Simulated assay, not measured.
Amino acid sequence: MKSSYSENSACVEAKLSTELLVRDSKEHEFGTLTFSPNAWQHFVTTLREKTFSS
């Protein structure tokens, strides 16, 4: 899936299977990040709460 807000493919792409795969839509050669469903949920929750710890 791609963001509906992307212009000129300047976004990230995500694929959901048993894991979430994320990559830069312009720089495919940089590879793909892989997240478990729990890790992705934690990431999204943290962003929503805007609480970051070092």
Rank of each mutant, 00 (worst) to 15 (best):
R23D: 00
E27Y: 11
T18D: 14
T32C: 10
K26S: 07
E7L: 11
L33M: 04
C11R: 03
H28V: 12
T34V: 13
E19T: 03
A39M: 14
T45S: 11
K26Q: 09
E13Y: 00
T46E: 10
T32S: 08
Y5M: 12
K15H: 07
S25E: 07
E7Q: 04
V44F: 01
Y5L: 14
L16Q: 14
V44P: 07
T32F: 03
F35W: 03
S25R: 03
S6Q: 07
N8D: 13
S36A: 09
H28P: 07
L21C: 10
A14D: 03
K15P: 01
V12K: 03
L21Y: 06
Q41N: 15
T46P: 09
T32R: 09
K15G: 03
R23Y: 01
E13V: 01
S25T: 00
V22N: 02
Q41C: 13
E27N: 15
Q41W: 11
T18V: 08
S17I: 04
T18Q: 13
H28G: 09
L16V: 14
V44H: 01
S9C: 09
W40T: 04
V12F: 03
P37G: 06
A14Q: 08
R23Q: 10
E13H: 05
E27L: 14
E27G: 04
A10Q: 12
F30D: 08
S17K: 07
E7F: 02
